[in-house]
């Protein structure tokens, strides 16, 4: 526990304020939560660049191993929103693995650094399932809140350390 507190202190020292808040912009079309939030939480648009989102939205029928095809009108409404709310710089770097693979916000340098104290066993836990399952541990992820105090890890991985 002491180690976590130390880590948290170190993280706060190097990150700007409000790093735990990734709110969904208020001008999101209703389809954003309904469609993008169907199989995973509606991810914060700021964690990928506009170019990344364009690529994601151009291949929804082959969406990370699933078919997430939308009608054209819905796809455009969501795509426009993602592009105008997209991020840039530090939080989006490293999200592209290359080889034509789709960008993943869960492999950016920022995401990895923020999760580097999560043990390997936690990522393999069935109750968590994948790095895209933010709400498995971040109890208020759907509200865009990722504070350390809101963490509820299913296996108690953090408190065991």
């Amino acid at each position: 526990m002491k180690r976590i507190a130390l880590f948290a202190a170190a993280a706060f020292a190097t990150l700007p304020a409000h790093a735990d808040r990734l709110p969904i912009p208020a001008d999101a079309p209703p389809a954003f939560a309904a469609e993008c939030g169907g199989c995973h939480i509606a991810f914060p648009p700021s964690l990928l660049t506009a170019d990344d989102w364009r690529r994601v939205m151009a291949s929804l029928d082959k969406h990370y191993g699933d078919n997430a095809a939308l009608d054209d009108r819905t796809r455009r409404a969501i795509g426009d929103f993602l592009e105008r709310s997209a991020g840039s710089g530090r939080r989006t770097e490293g999200a592209n693995a290359g080889n034509g693979a789709l960008p993943r916000l869960t492999i950016s340098n920022w995401f990895r650094r923020k999760h580097d104290e999560v043990p390997a066993a936690a990522w393999k836990d069935k109750r968590i399932g994948s790095a895209a399952n933010c709400a498995a541990c971040h109890s208020r992820a759907e509200m865009g809140s990722y504070g350390e105090r809101e963490l509820r890890m299913p296996g108690g991985y953090l408190s065991e350390r």
Partner: peptide, 9 residues
């Protein structure tokens, strides 16, 4: 249930 890829409930 649980989504087979994302793990979401």
């Amino acid at each position: 249930g649980r989504h087979a890829i994302t793990g979401k409930t």
